[in-house]
Design a protein around this nucleic acid. Sequence first.
RNA 1: GCCCCCAUCGUCUAGCGGUCCAGGACGCCGCCCUUUCAAGGCGGUAGCACGGGUUCGAACCCCGUUGGGGGCACCA
Length: 493
Amino acid sequence: MTAPATVRTRFCPSPTGLVHVGLVRTALFNWAHARHAGGAFVFRIEDTDAARDTEESYRHLVDSLRWLGLDWDEGPEVGGPHGPYRQSERHDVYREVAAKLLAAGSAYESFSTPEEVEARRLAAGQDPKLGYDNADRYLTDAQKAAFRDEGRRPVLRLRMPEEDLGWTDLVRGEVRFTAGAVPDFVLVRANGAPLYPFVNPVDDALMGITDVLRGEDLLPSTPRQLALYAALADIGIGTGAPRFGHLPLVTGEGTRKLSKRDPQSNLDVHRERGFLPEGLVNYLALLGWAIAEDRDVFTPAELVAAFDVTRVSANPARFDLRKAEAINATHLRALPVEEFVERVTPFLAAVGLVADPPTDDQRRVLTAIAPLAQERMVVLSDAVDLLGFLFTDEVALDPGAVGKQLSGSGAVEVLDAASAALADLADWSTAEIEAALRTALVDGLGRKPRQAFGPVRVAVSGRTVSPPLYESIELLGRERTLARLSAARGAAG
RNA sequence: GCCCCCAUCGUCUAGCGGUCCAGGACGCCGCCCUUUCAAGGCGGUAGCACGGGUUCGAACCCCGUUGGGGGCACCA
């Protein structure tokens, strides 16, 4: 098999619900493979199941791909020479191809009902799981007519070849299924509706897809698709089968495939928490692939430059949220300040902390605190708890923090001393604030730094964990700081 | 049940016959730094599933066992 001149990959989800991270990983590898090869990435919507597909889900898919930065060269909202790219708009194409396949003898009409097939298997002492028994392969015209007279409508089945079917998988190497293992499968339903095993290869052939990267769960369906591609080529559609690469499954907590029921499988959950798209893309790429022996943080551009599908691992990969968060945190810290402010604003605005866009003053504070906040955050939504105190007049004191730092008379002493030290401070700067507090609390009161600054931190931020104290106080301003010190004094004791 | 895939630290992986008494990352545990929390620095913990071959030599190749997973629709 010679490599095609131009690589064309595709992502062809069905708009039936949430966007699964395993699905995203598949899209990502197809995208990276196409981009690396300088080829094309095609986006196609497989909405042939009217009962389950929704317009909302379709729009969500488009939006998710955009958010992730996986741009497509052909597909919905972009167009292209092989459209339409939604299968619900391609029924005429399928009808025509089905008719040609039937005329060529590659496909045939089958009248057996599932119940009849099962009954025959049972009668022969066989496992019904074996499926269809190819019984209708050589029906005469008279037999077909008789069935029609009974009011039966046939399904269209592909005649599977009597030979082993194998291919060289891009990630697994040689894979081979023995002849007869796959029964003649249904292309078109009795009601005329074309099925996925039919439309998927038809569109791939028509759209010139050269490389199919998909989940391992689809590996067992490859032999029948190989047979279909051959039959299609015979009637002048496409040039035979594309290259296949079956990606390892993404598993959840246990060893099972990550379930739709598992919250972690939902892309939106991560997006709403404030994962960066490049952080998630980085992590997802690590599920089955490595950029280098001693490195695992990289940008999408670096991924594209280095991606090689033949280096993808064949074993299942567990979705590990902790590692995903660690990778995301690294990307978060690497963000330039303006970029960070830009991205975090929607999360603060959503809870009313800042305006969107922020006011000049809010922007000033955000920009100043950004470097200190970035290295304390894992996801963007962390900013709400971490920075909220800077954007409200009165901070809510965390009960746990109050118990830890404001109980006992010592706290009152500290707060009073801090107030006195800051009340008339000439130069309201981080350095002066630190000097004044140290003089008053550490030297004056003889407190250890840990005991001295704990109560002040809680008073100012409401929490035991906050950005660095002196910087926070400076940004908060004298008035609010003194008010909080005094409010905390009321809660202390 | 049948078919197929997979098998290196708890997890994701590097390793593509000798440079491996197996490297990195996450996690975990220490120590340093330190106003909290992080970040950062240093150190540690832990793995080639088992059994046969092939070979001068195997984590790497072959076979088997065991274990795990996926698929067996007129759903995608």
